[in-house]
Amino acid sequence: MGMNPLPSRKLVMKKEDVPQHGGLTAGCREVNYAVDADGNYSLELSVGWEAKNATLRQAWEAIVERLHLVLEEINAGHKSPLAYHMVKNQMDVSLLAQYSGFARWRVRRHLKPQVFKRLRSAVLTVYADLFRISIAQLQQVPDQPDLCIEDMSSSGTPL
């Protein structure tokens, strides 16, 4: 058997070491693997780990930032409201094309304000149904990004 070259910086993952840092999971608990006092593996429930919450928050912050940028473009008249709903649903042109069934070049056209304004309701319905909003909601955008993620602000857990 070769030696384990890893320095053991701390003790192995123990039952009592399974982190319980809440936030983001809306109360859902997940299974973590940890060893008990006898060195046997057992399944422990965890409400979260701050390292993970921090990076999950970071991913949502990136989406919120993209939403801010797209709102600026829409207000400047460069993009149609469809662009906002696309970004809000974490899609790009290619994914939106696959979901809507429209060719990519058509989706790209629909992102232009002049084209979007004149779209038939049959086309609008496809997008509205996909995003699960009404046509009226599809045609407008909020002043500020409206993602409904709870507890986006950093929790007090130290890292």
């Binding site: 299974v31 973590n32 693997y33 593996y41 390292a51 993970k52 990076t55 999950l56």
Partner: peptide
């Protein structure tokens, strides 16, 4: 963003922690 993405892939729900290495240790046991 790239670093955060690695952490999420490693620790996201479904890995049991440590990028599946703890599950595998439990398996070896």
């Amino acid at each position: 963003q790239h670093l955060g993405h690695i952490v999420r892939m490693q620790e996201e729900i479904g890995t049991g922690g440590g990028g599946f290495r703890f599950i595998y240790a439990a398996f070896l046991q």
